[in-house]
Amino acid sequence: MYDYHLLDIEFEYDAQTQVITPIILRDARETILVDCGYPNFARLLKEAAIRYDVTLESITKLIVTHHDMDHIGSLAALKRAYPHIVIIAHELEAPHIDGTKKSLRLEQVEATFDVLPDEAKPHAEQFMNLLQSIEPIAVDRIVTNNEQLPWCGGIEIVHTPGHMPGHMSLYLPASNTLIAGDAVVIEQGQLNIANPQFTLDLDEAIRSVQRLLDYDIEQIICYHGGLFRGDVKQALKQLIHAYTS
């Protein structure tokens, strides 16, 4: 048996109110956090977790879906405060998390900077500075596609590239739940691709959504948008159709 809690965190960013949804998974022995927000989000995570009687000290594992800064920004700070936490990431993401390789998001911004209009460059420079400020941290356990983790009734690693090459989602067969990361988001009640204009490989992202049809999914937890219930398979098919028709 296990339970899960959506840590809906509302905050101001770039003059807009935003919400992200890290997830706590908990069974008799493990307390697992999936993704951890922007830099300096430890306090917000603590406040969100305590609503479910979960303390950050009790977290045993921290699974990272990919290395965008809103998913790993507080990773190093959490590891420093709670060194027992085991950090888990996909094999393609680990070098970008531990600093062996440059952030792919930073490479993307750098590659397009010169063609930006002058009025957009200060914002891009600010974004690059923030990306460069993310503190690298070693990954304790590297996972691969279809790997089965033995916690919370079983967690299957689902490699869902596109948004980033090493992006992964998590399938929980005990409850037919998919933790999507940024493989899909919820916008106006519908599933969509996360920031398609910034997705590193949009065609691959659509193929990843197609692969999700192989799973018996009754609900999807999106990092941006929260919980999606209903006819998941039909919603995924509509999303695919929207980008391929």
Rank of each mutant, 00 (worst) to 15 (best):
F198K: 15
M164L: 08
Y82M: 06
D201L: 01
I32P: 00
V86C: 15
F11I: 05
H84K: 13
V143A: 01
L25W: 02
D214W: 05
A94D: 01
G99R: 12
F41I: 04
I50T: 13
D3G: 10
P161Y: 03
D53N: 14
L33D: 00
A49S: 14
A183V: 13
H5W: 11
A42K: 15
G225A: 05
P95H: 06
D68T: 08
Y38Q: 11
H224F: 10
T21I: 07
R26I: 02
L44K: 11
P150H: 10
I137G: 00
P161E: 00
M168Q: 14
M1D: 14
I20K: 09
N192E: 12
G99M: 14
I240L: 09
R105Y: 10
G37F: 03
D14T: 06
P22Y: 04
K121H: 12
G73N: 04
N195C: 06
Q238D: 13
S169M: 02
E93K: 08
A15T: 12
I32R: 06
N129L: 09
E119K: 15
K61C: 06
L62H: 02
P39R: 12
L170S: 05
S208G: 10
R141H: 11
F228N: 00
T31N: 07
T31S: 12
Q210N: 14
D53K: 13
T60Y: 04
L33Q: 04
T55H: 14
T100C: 05
T244K: 12
A76W: 05
S103M: 07
L7M: 09
K101G: 01
I220R: 05
A120I: 06
G166A: 04
E30M: 08
A124T: 09
R51A: 12
L44Y: 06
D35M: 04
T199Y: 00
T160E: 03
H123R: 11
H71E: 09
L44F: 06
I63V: 11
I217S: 03
A28D: 13
D35W: 02
L236G: 01
S58M: 12
S74E: 04
I23A: 09
A124G: 02
P122Q: 10
E57G: 13
C152S: 05
T21V: 13
L170W: 02
T244L: 11
G225C: 05
P122A: 10
D182I: 03
V19K: 15
K46A: 14
P122E: 06
G189D: 06
S103C: 12
D14S: 12
Q188W: 02
E93C: 08
E57T: 10
N195M: 08
S169F: 01
N192G: 07
P161W: 01
K102D: 08
I20T: 12
